[in-house]
Write a protein that binds this DNA or RNA. Sequence first.
DNA 1: CATCGCCGTTTCGCAACGCGAAACGAAGGG
DNA 2: CCCTTCGTTTCGCGTTGCGAAACGGCGATG
Lengths: 260, 260
Amino acid sequence: MGIRAIERAMAVLQELNLQPINTIAQLHARTKLPKPTLVRILRTLEDAGYVENDPRQGGYQVSALVTSLSSGYHKGPLVVEAGRAWAIAMTRQHKWPVAIALPDYDRMVVRFSTVPDSFVSPFHSTVNKRLNFLTRGLGLAYLAFLDNDEFDLIIDVLKRSDDPENALSHHPDELKRLVGRVHENGYAIRSSLVEPKNSNTIGVPIISHGGRVLASIGLTYFKSAFGSEQEACDRYAPILKSAAAAISEDLDRLSNHLAA
Amino acid sequence: MGIRAIERAMAVLQELNLQPINTIAQLHARTKLPKPTLVRILRTLEDAGYVENDPRQGGYQVSALVTSLSSGYHKGPLVVEAGRAWAIAMTRQHKWPVAIALPDYDRMVVRFSTVPDSFVSPFHSTVNKRLNFLTRGLGLAYLAFLDNDEFDLIIDVLKRSDDPENALSHHPDELKRLVGRVHENGYAIRSSLVEPKNSNTIGVPIISHGGRVLASIGLTYFKSAFGSEQEACDRYAPILKSAAAAISEDLDRLSNHLAA
DNA sequence: CATCGCCGTTTCGCAACGCGAAACGAAGGG
DNA sequence: CCCTTCGTTTCGCGTTGCGAAACGGCGATG
């Protein structure tokens, strides 16, 4: 049992990262903390410089100083660092959030996301979120481009799971058809059977020059903004593909540089 | 006056980011907090997942989750995002910490640094640190490559300061000579008159394809590791220059991408 | 124009909560 | 073998943070 005030403050800081702007009421609803407590915590964080209170915008937001809370952590794979700039740039232009995910045992883990920069969205933090391989755009985009050995290895793991989102691992034919389609298209989308149903994610693999699948990068949009799924895919899949290629290119240049 | 426990916890988290591994004794010395208090704070942060306690390594360190405390902040300039991967890669290979700084009024502000990834160093956090233009490697590297108008504008500001580190702004001839040398070399070093004297920073400008000076990137090393200053510069200046060029290249590709 | 509801913020008395001196056990060093 | 120094635990005290209640402002509603 830790120090309550600190636990609460960290929870608030987490919540603040989910949206560009946060009202007391929203934070109250999400954290279940009494409003005076929130005000006190926020003022403490504001005094310390981690949070800004902009009454004109009607709410609180994280400030630049929060970056120094994690400035000492760079153990992440280089592909995430190389992809950041591209993800940010894509969100700046196309508005929709972009995420980069890496495999971890039986799931893909989101390691970077521009959700908070983007639309005011109902999503919760996607960073550190674990996504299933067989139903998620970022999962399928990775899985479908693996070589056979690695592919089978993961499917074997998934077979031992009783998560309904992994059900497809028991239907090899259907799975093969799905993966084949992803492979052909060069991109994957989220299964229409899973939540949230008002949005969709288009994912593409990031493949090194050596041919290894390193990660996946995806863009998420509200379905209501497009007439059809196809329309959105036609528009964003090429952009994602060329961003993925550019990231791979960056990585290649990085390692050549290092070798020199 | 904020909530004390939170202020303390944030201070501890800051300290944890300065070094790869932190003992209770070190934290005690730097934060002046009683050791039982530190243990309690650290256990709270550990329970929450932000900190890991590895007794084998003999200390505490920040864990991957800290990144989610700032995952909602991407307002920084793209040049910082583009430079991250290069800075990290350089530190991985050459061990020494690398920092990226941007101008802000009368100083350069460090916006990204790999200090904690690197050597166990006596430095305090360099992120958000404000460095003088005329005495620091990262300052001179930026200043010396500005066009005349921008250069004069900054010097005018510095003249109005009584900071001894800005003294050179009152000696145009000496200043011109110094800037000329930096320009010729293509890199700048920290003045030997300022602290800390046991280390040095080599800085180079990051210049956009359009010719604008965007930022500076620099590498810091302990003087004791090299026979002479020249030796270190000969070794690292070319590496920094080519990294700066590569970052500029990345930015160019990013913007072309966006235009397409 | 009065009323209502919801907002963010302030007040204030209570006691829960966090505090840290002191003690503890373990691990080197001389 | 003693002595220091480390990280951690204990525990009684009192400061500090707590949150119900109240407040003032604002926009919608009738």
